[in-house]
């Protein structure tokens, strides 16, 4: 039992962080906070991958003379590029938020929905 708690602890941390990010995305009204939540979600996946790559007694995957056991370099490569792609996509999300702010004057989801409904109503009247 204790064995499995220690052995699976890394997954549980990743799951906890992922759920924290998920909660922020679905529960918060503010778009900037949603982006931060998405980033936390993303980091939890990074942690999952990197912890998969760790090998007992291993050292960083750079060849040197008197080391035999290395950690797995493959997850490192995948996550390394994912981080940079992540910041680029975050920037895209942030620029969407900027345009939303300029168009609606708010970045709260409830305000945006309200403004959308107000815009739609007069056109429906015109049709009638």
């Amino acid at each position: 039992m204790i064995d499995s708690i220690v052995g699976l602890y890394n997954y549980w941390i990743a799951i906890f962080l992922m759920m924290a990010g998920f909660y922020t995305v679905i529960a918060s009204d503010n778009l900037v906070k949603k982006i931060v939540g998405l980033n936390i979600f993303q980091t939890s996946v990074f942690i999952l991958y990197i912890s998969l790559g760790k090998v007992e007694g291993g050292s960083p995957p750079i060849v040197s003379a008197n080391i035999d056991v290395y950690s797995n370099p493959l997850p490192h490569v995948l996550i390394l590029t994912a981080i940079v792609v992540g910041v680029a996509t975050t920037a895209l999300g942030l620029s969407l938020i900027i345009r939303i702010k300029k168009a609606y004057g708010s970045v709260e989801e409830s305000d945006i929905i309200e403004a959308d409904q107000q815009m739609l109503e007069p056109t429906q009247d015109e049709k009638q």
Binding site: N39, G53, K54, G58, I62, S71, I79, I83
Partner: peptide
């Protein structure tokens, strides 16, 4: 700590 030095580098600079 998890031996991913390259990744740590990137995360520190990006995040």
């Amino acid at each position: 700590v998890l031996d991913a030095v390259d990744v740590a580098f990137t995360e520190a600079a990006v995040g």
